[in-house]
Nucleic acid binder design. Structure first.
Lengths: 226, 226
DNA sequence: GCAAAAGTGTTCAATGTACACCCATGC
DNA sequence: GCATGGGTGTACATTGAACACTTTTGC
């Protein structure tokens, strides 16, 4: 009975969302080897024997984006025996939301990968393994989370306008929202800090900048991210 | 890098809730061997090389309870390198809700287990591994699910009274609910079928029996259990 | 007739939704 | 002065929460 388990392999894959060019995008890597050589996949890797699964996911996030201290949530563990064509690989998937500016995509020259790139979520190339399913499920979960917690702030710069925040919501949810209701809700929620700064307008009325109120956010962390 | 993964072991553990003697209980097994010999644990086992994780969890559920076709949901994957004292064991935890009547608890004489028993959730013995944490998290998720889907019906017989349904909710949520509001909500929801049958009262007013409307439930399955 | 559980409605507060116009700026 | 995106409030419907008494039965 124990013998059987020896050939399991356990990986973690991380779905990393961002907003770039007014589009919701996901980070993909191009595979250097078979199986699925030359196909796009979400970044992932083996879980090391003495690291937690969370740590493995964070490590992979950092390897590709140099980003740390991010909202990273365990999504689901995918274990169909046929999901990997060669061997039994169980993967514990995570998802994360990050800002794409001031990020330098990178990868070691370990010959596992030949490219790293952002791809529009709503227009993905053909993906390796069951990664399409994993991304779809991530999006679904992100939408569910968004109804309760303001995780969209991970996608925005420290100072942002309400319109930018609304755009982020609309991109994730895939639908238009009512401007007045949106603003009313956030201004009532006390998680935003109204700044006395405005965008230097490029040919239109300057917009007020807001930031997330770290104190309120931390105090509600258990509530939001439980 | 690949070599490292060879010593991972992957199991699934299943938290099985039921209601017995007006208490919310969870199924525990007593371990026959070290580590944690003689300690109570939630039932679990290795995932076979060619079965899905879902199938493994269902198999374990069936081995202990002979129950199939049940609401079984993947909970979370626990992978702290120190959660097992001897080796690296990653476990993919599931939870399920079942009725305890007409269930015969059982276990193979494979000498892994010396006992199988229901234990009150709110009064657990000391548990092996991180199983206390897993049960607590299961309860939390069950509560969250309960706010959206009527999963409590898994705990009840086919025909039940509104009071029994309410009791099930109260036991899971750990708090009293308002009778009138509770009934109003369910009678408005159209997921209950009102039967022309009543409990044969034991010294009190007979109560109307209801059953879950399978058709409505199935049509809302995607909605509830998405 | 009394103990025990079944059954029943109204009011109020909070929340979500629909909806249209004026404002400040750059050109 | 006009085009562009920024900013604002009201009315309505839905939902959840609080709350107390009458009914039916077995004994």
């Amino acid at each position: 009975m124990f013998k059987e388990t020896k050939t399991h392999e356990v990986t973690t894959d991380v779905v990393i969302f961002t907003i770039e060019d007014e589009k919701l995008k996901v980070l993909l890597v191009k595979r250097a080897h078979e199986p699925f050589k030359g196909k796009w996949a979400i970044p992932g890797g083996f879980i090391r024997i003495s690291e937690t699964i969370d740590a493995a996911a964070l490590r992979i996030l950092k390897e590709k984006t140099n980003v740390q201290n991010i909202y990273l949530e365990q999504l689901y563990t995918f274990g169909d025996p046929l999901r990997h064509p060669d061997s039994r690989v169980i993967t514990c998937a995570y998802f994360a939301l990050i800002r794409s500016d001031d990020i330098v995509l990178s990868f070691d020259d370990n010959s596992e990968i030949t490219e790293v790139q952002w791809h529009p979520v709503y227009n993905l190339p053909k993906l390796a393994f069951d990664h399409k399913e994993i991304i779809e499920y991530s999006l679904k979960r992100t939408r569910e989370r968004l109804e309760f917690c303001p995780i969209a702030f991970q996608l925005l710069p420290e100072k942002f306008t309400l319109t930018e925040l609304q755009k982020a919501y609309e991109l994730i949810l895939g639908k238009k929202l009512d401007k007045r209701n949106f603003r009313k809700k956030f201004l009532a929620s006390a998680i935003l800090k109204e700044l006395n700064e405005f965008t230097k307008s490029g040919s239109k009325r300057p917009a007020r900048l807001y930031s997330f109120d770290k104190i309120t956010l931390d105090s509600k962390r258990g509530h939001f991210f439980s």
